[in-house]
Write a protein that binds this DNA or RNA. Structure first.
Lengths: 153, 153
DNA sequence: ATACTGAGTTGCGTAAAGCAACCCAGTATC
DNA sequence: GATACTGGGTTGCTTTACGCAACTCAGTAT
């Protein structure tokens, strides 16, 4: 195809994020990274992804500052891929995916891996809340306001 | 490419969601839908997406029950695309994308469209919280537990 | 009679996904 | 001391789907 269209000029955080993360494999690689997978072959085996595509995605994530490589042995030289702070901050996105998927496409219950919140000790699900009043969001109560720019997006 | 690999057998809500939403255009179409765009040509103009790709994505979203078509005039017959409840429930995902993008790739401030929470009346950002104790999530405090299935994923 | 609008469909060229095979350094095995 | 294995890729090939432009088709406006 003609080079995938760049979304940068859209000047929108959703678009910019989608450009990085809006790809099935990238999402799954991140999921695995949150589950503790660190090595090339482990990602490959777990996802069944083509090796060249995996190499490409890992490089892209490293370049975006979402993953970082760290050598774990010298001879032979080997390294692993770890989430950076920027990468770990994507947890919200994955939790949102997960909650929606559980709710609407409910896979076999036996395959759901529960999340435990260490702060309160309970099994949890994520809820997106207002940072101001703390109430859970409902699409009926969120309004997108015009931007400050002259010709808005 | 050889048919995009199906992720269904992965038995994972994140994977299933990624299969539907894990595509740049789909994310942007949903963003536009939340902004109130309803018609084919408006999506097309706004995103600059190829018309055949747009037709494909819209059909896929309708088939997934995320969008629904509704006629808005008979002669000539015309219809618009509206978010279903299932679709509106994806708000969390978009809010998570947005928050992450604003934080780490901060585009020009003038282009950020503020969100207003009608319940408390304030300009807000979303925060992913524990549905149990209400505290904001932090990756250090979330642990993925093993699933109940014999061979887990 | 011509042009315009909305909502697509068709056809074409190119790039990217998938697959398998290969590579290379070091380590373990027979 | 030749062979096999491991980790982390790269190369080559085929097939698919993206981007673009052009076309369609029904109805409406000029």
């Amino acid at each position: 195809m003609p080079a995938r269209k760049s979304l940068e000029e859209l000047q929108c955080s959703v678009a910019n994020t989608a450009e990085l993360v809006g790809d099935q494999w990238t999402v799954l690689i991140l999921r695995d990274a949150f589950l503790g997978i660190k090595r090339f072959d482990d990602f490959q085996r777990d996802l069944g992804i083509a090796r060249n595509v995996l190499a490409d995605r890992l490089a892209r994530l490293v370049q975006a500052g979402i993953l970082d490589t760290r050598p774990y042995q010298d001879r032979p030289p080997r390294h692993e891929y770890l989430l950076t702070e920027k990468g770990k901050d994507l947890l919200d996105v994955l939790v949102a995916f997960r909650r929606w998927g559980d709710k609407w496409n409910a896979p076999d219950d036996r395959f759901i891996r529960p999340l435990r919140h260490l702060e309160c000790g309970e099994i949890m699900e994520g809820v997106m809340c207002c940072n101001h009043c703390g109430q859970p969001l409902d699409h009926r109560n969120v309004r997108v306001e015009p931007s400050l720019a002259p010709v808005s997006r």
